[in-house]
Design a protein around this nucleic acid. Structure first.
Length: 895
RNA sequence: GGGCGAAUAGCUCAGCUGGUUAGAGCGCCUGCCUUACACGCAGGAUGUCGGGGGUUCGAAUCCCUCUUCGCCCACCA
């Protein structure tokens, strides 16, 4: 009976690559292909557009991509099947710092630095690296089954996107929203570049706070300051206290003799100081601390920069400190203070310190000339879009984070002292001193001299924030732009909410006049069993390609989707891939085998339609109880799962379909239908029609989550054209056939009876091969209708109806009070049977008691909705019926 | 320091607008290679739904509080 061309174990490796190629060749991923609507008179539905968060060109596939790409693909495939022209637009990000770091490491292997190579040569090296490896990550995404439109793939350094970057820079500059200035910025001494506030990740560290005595210039005593960074004292320009702090009033206007450097600096008053903290007196280093910088500005202090770009002390400090690393300098300064008797003390101090988000080096606040974007004017409409509901977040609470970021937004430092990226489109003329901000390269200044371009490049995110329109051709007015902007949903991890998502909203509104998407779906993070984020450094990562190779992309996708409720993380065990991905793998195999069985039994016979205006449509009268039941279940599944998909409750969609396939279709319907399927009679024809269609529906519903296996099986259904694809099949609706509650109710009785007999067989250890005789107190129509099924599934020799026999035997009571008597001969033990029934009775009695209490409560009866009260009454009646039957049985047995 | 979230079976988690005999997967125990599937089938065990208060006829679900873990933000040096 089994088709030997299908192996009993699903082998994903054998089909995935080929299938992916088939989809590509058929153009299944393009939004503008021959969709069903295109021939009709109706206007095409609004396109569904997702911008893929562009992976870094240097990226290697990890589970974070696995999750992110899977979610997007599920949504894209779902909407595509529902008939919307769907564009899922992929690209890669040049990833300024990250990529430069990678290539610098390669260069270092040759014993060189980027400075040895020079800018031009280094950038050439990066390009050749990118050309060589840039597609690797995209190829890896394909292994996951991603149905992105690769024909539109962009790279953030492409000519078009570069034009968009310049256009934006110039426009913002013209509007006065881009400016250059000397401010304290976050500096990474390892990457040797400025960073934005978002790129400086604050993390708590156990530090120390030292109390240093600064001798008064008068020679009469000290003022003691508290600092977490003693080394910066070499650049101190003042000591500041709160103006109302009486302790220091006598000292105001005096000055101190700064130890080690022997400079005299004033003692000043400023509101910014908290008298409660530390000693109440603060040393002020305007060049190395943002607050100090502000205080310095208020008091006209001249900042003294004491560090080199790589955070070593420079020539402004006494010779013995020059060239020291900042941490070494810290030790030396403390040492000297101690030797001089000027160290008042030291305490442990836990505080937040900024770290470079690329290399984790401690950030050095640094005073330097940088370019900034004035953000407040851009943030206001972006915040309004959220407040007015034009933009929503899933989960909702993420919206608050977005809002508070927008409300407290600070200017964005966009210049980077890197070589890899979009060079700042500004030219300086040394001849006449003119600064030119231009869309095009400036070869010659108006004064005739040759200007030099700004050395810096732009923050990577300065190109990413434009992607929703720059990737569609902006600033050109392209057809794509008109058609696919604004997009629909953005799917990403919460980590880049501010880096990317929030900024895209601002850019979208500023340059396109509309939010770039109406929904932001922020999914969780993949973590290990200790809830640690998976990372290369911890070595707790899972290689998705390894999982795909072993268990298939579908197994990975299903597992990830099924374990990801909205707003929660995905926990996987890197040490036990088999167990981690068992749900997906097992389910894929189950589907495979159900399919194998069904396809074998369908052969090449086309099944009759269950619904529709066809002459050979299956009529309701032709259906048996089980048929009506599974069709009803199938309809429910379609309704529930479709609803879940639209609400981004993908895990619910997954589990709804899973349980339909496994519990309803495989465990019950297929088992029920086997005799009919083996036959060639008319009953078989109906069973084939029902199983064929419900299985097809399940495949379609599941396709967004498990694309490969569903397509493979779907294509093998009878009558498929060779180039047909499940991707182009219409999303299922209800069969609108035989939908009636009675089928559900009646078939449940059948399931209950079978379950009760199986349970007793197991408890009494009846040999699997041995059949038993059963007598049911009531001959329900459902029992008669499914008698064969019942006898087969419960291994019953004879099923009769009537009053239970009085002699000892095993007994069960169904929920409606129907009693079952199972003749087991010697196996029956009256004592054990009494105990069993007693335990049952006990359980039911407790339920009855609680129901009676509830219904006896006048408050409940009076206040609860009538339907609820009615339901509780019905439950009580049912329990009482069961209890009565159990008591009677016990009486008969003489318990 | 400010804001937010979570705590449910051995593990990972569902349980969405208060009414369930509190569920799933994995793991565990028992019996089965029953001709789709041992990545399987059948049966089974395990929860004072973190502690304490409250609202309500009724709370895993709403409120308060405590404890413990997370996340986001933050210029107390």
């Amino acid at each position: 009976m089994t088709d030997l061309s299908l192996p009993p174990q699903y082998n994903p490796a054998a089909i995935e690559a080929e299938l992916y190629r088939f989809w590509l060749e058929r153009g299944c991923f393009a939004p503008d292909a021959d969709q069903a609507w295109s021939g009709g008179a109706l206007a095409p539905p609004r396109p569904y557009v997702i911008m893929m968060p562009p992976p870094n060109v240097t990226a290697v596939l990890h589970m974070g991509h696995g999750l992110n790409i899977t979610v997007q693909d599920v949504l894209a495939r779902f909407e595509r099947m529902r008939g919307r022209p769907t564009l899922w637009l992929p690209g890669t990000d040049h990833a300024g710092i990250a990529t430069q770091n990678v290539v610098e490491k390669l260069v270092a292997k040759e014993g060189k630095t980027r400075f040895d190579l020079g800018r031009e040569e280094f950038v050439r090296r990066v390009w050749s690296y990118v050309d060589e490896t840039g597609d690797a990550i995209l190829e890896q995404l394909k292994a996951l089954g991603a149905s992105a439109d690769w024909s539109r793939t962009y790279f953030t350094l492409d000519d078009g996107l570069s034009r968009a970057v310049r256009e934006v820079f110039v426009r913002l500059h013209e509007k006065g929203l881009i400016y250059r200035g000397k401010y304290i910025i976050n500096w990474c001494p390892r990457c040797l570049t400025a960073l934005s506030n978002e790129e400086a990740e604050k993390s708590e560290v156990d530090g120390k706070i030292w109390r240093l005595r600064y001798p008064l210039a008068s020679g009469q005593g000290f003022i003691t300051v508290a600092t977490t960074r003693p080394e910066t004292m070499l650049g101190d320009m003042a000591v500041v206290v709160h103006p109302e702090d009486k302790r220091f009033h006598p000292l105001l206007g005096q000055s101190v003799r700064l130890p080690l450097v022997d400079r005299e600096i004033p003692i000043l008053a400023d509101e910014a100081i908290d008298p409660e903290f530390g000693t109440g007196a603060v040393k002020v280093t305007p060049a190395h601390d943002p607050l100090d910088f502000e205080i310095g500005q208020r008091h006209g202090l001249t900042p003294l920069d004491i560090m080199t770009p790589d955070a070593h002390l420079n020539d402004t400090v006494p010779a013995r400190f020059r060239g020291l690393d900042r941490f070494e300098a810290r030790r030396r300064v403390v040492q000297e203070f101690e030797a001089l008797g000027l160290l008042d003390g030291v305490d442990g101090h836990r505080h937040a310190v900024g770290h470079c988000y690329r290399c984790d080096t401690v950030i050095e606040p640094r005073l330097s000339d940088q370019w900034f974007v004035k953000m407040k004017p851009l943030a206001a409409p972006a915040l309004a879009a959220y407040r007015t509901g034009k933009l929503r977040f899933i989960p909702e609470r993420r919206g608050d984070e977005y809002a508070s970021w927008m409300e407290n937004i600070r200017d964005w430092c966009i210049s980077r002292q890197l070589w890899w990226g979009h060079r700042i489109p500004v030219w300086y003329c040394d001849g006449c001193g003119t600064t030119t901000v231009s869309r095009d390269d400036v070869a010659r200044c108006s004064c005739g001299a040759v200007p030099r371009q700004d050395e810096d490049v732009l923050d990577t995110w300065f190109s990413s924030w434009l992607v929703p329109f720059s990737s569609l051709g902006w600033p050109e007015r392209t057809e794509d732009l008109a058609r696919y902007y604004p997009g629909s949903v953005l799917v990403t991890a919460p980590e880049i909410l501010f880096f990317w998502v929030a900024r895209m909203v601002m850019a979208g509104i500023e340059f396109m006049g509309e939010v770039p998407f109406d929904t932001v779906y922020l999914h969780g993070t993949v973590r290990d069993t200790q809830h640690r984020k998976m990372s290369k450094s911890l070595g707790n990562g899972i290689d998705p390609l390894e999982v795909i190779e072993k268990y298939g992309a579908d197994a990975l996708r299903y597992t990830v989707i099924a374990s990801m409720a909205v707003g929660t993380d995905v926990i996987l065990d890197p040490k036990d891939l088999e167990t981690s991905f068992a749900p997906g793998r097992n389910f894929a195999n189950k589907l495979w085998n159900a399919g194998r069985f069904i396809l074998t039994n369908l052969g090449d016979r086309r099944t009759r339609p269950l619904a529709g205006p066809y002459a050979n449509v299956v009529r309701r009268e032709e259906l048996g109880l089980a048929d009506r039941w599974i069709i009803d279940r199938c309809d429910q599944m379609v309704r529930d799962a479709t609803d879940s998909y639209t609400k981004f409750r993908l895990n619910e969609a997954a589990s709804t379909i899973y349980h339909f396939v496994w519990s309803d279709l495989a465990d019950w319907y297929i088992e029920q239908a086997k005799p009919r399927l083996y036959d060639t009679g008319s009953g078989g024809e109906i069973a084939r029609a029902v199983v064929g269609r419900t299985f097809e529906v399940a495949l379609q519903m599941l396709h967004p989550i498990m694309p490969f296996i569903t397509e493979t099986l779907w294509k093998r259904l009878p009558g498929r054209a060779p180039d047909a694809s499940i991707m182009r099949s219409a999303w299922p609706g209800a069969a609108r056939l035989a939908v009636d509650a009675s089928a559900e109710r009646e078939f449940t009785l059948v399931q209950e009876l079978v379950g009760a007999v199986r349970q007793i067989r197991a408890e009494y250890g009846v040999e699997p091969g041995k059949s038993v005789n059963v007598r049911a107190s009531q001959a329900h129509a459902a029992f008669r209708a499914e008698e064969g099924t019942i006898m087969r599934l419960a291994k019953i020799g004879s099923l009769t109806y009537g009053a239970p026999l009085a002699e000892p035997g095993a007994n069960a009571v169904l929920a409606d009070g129907t009693t079952l008597y199972i003749a087991l001969g010697d196996l029956v033990d009256v004592k054990k049977e009494c105990e069993r029934l007693g335990a049952d009775l006990n359980r039911i009695s407790q339920l009855i008691e609680s129901q009676q209490k509830k219904l006896g409560n006048e408050q409940f009866v009076g206040r609860a909705p009538a339907a609820v009260v009615e339901g509780e009454r019905a439950k009580l009646a049912q329990f009482e019926q069961q209890a009565a039957a159990l008591r009677e049985k016990r009486g008969q047995l003489g318990c």
